[in-house]
Design a binder for these strands. Structure first.
Length: 117
DNA sequence: CCTTTGACCAACA
DNA sequence: TTGTTGGCCAAAG
């Protein structure tokens, strides 16, 4: 099982205009307790270049990774550019949170199985 | 082998 | 509703 390879795939599945949480991604990768490693991976670009890191926030909707971008408000701009409103450095997860459907979860699992990871 | 360090999180006061 | 606390776990030193 390769956590980081899975993370790359799961991350690419985050829809435009939506955000996912670190814990949620860890869960999709089959490692519910590895939320910290998700942040770690994003910080080092270990999860592939295609992963939209700006769509990842913490469980309270806070843009905790913002300082790691080229400029501190880059993440905010990118999100607003997708129609996601950012208030006080936070997003409303009820509105913009990625509620992954069973189909999406299954598609991911299938993807993992197919790649043997 | 330790020990320290995080883009975390749920529970609790 | 905001702080704090203890738990988490892979990397790096």
């Amino acid at each position: 099982m390769d956590f980081y390879r899975r993370l790359a795939l799961a991350g690419e599945a985050i829809p435009f205009g939506k955000v996912a949480t670190y814990g949620q991604l860890a869960l999709l990768c089959g490692r519910p307790r590895n939320s910290r490693q998700v942040g770690y991976a994003l910080n080092r670009g270990m999860a592939g270049e295609k992963l939209p890191a700006h769509r990842v926030v913490n469980s309270q909707g806070l843009l905790t990774g913002a300082p790691a971008f080229d400029t501190p408000d880059m993440q905010k701009w990118l999100l607003e550019g997708e129609g996601v409103e950012v208030k006080d450095g936070k997003v409303d997860l009820k509105k913009y949170g990625w509620h992954n459907t069973m189909e999406e979860a299954m598609a991911l699992k299938e993807c993992f199985d197919r790649l043997g990871i």
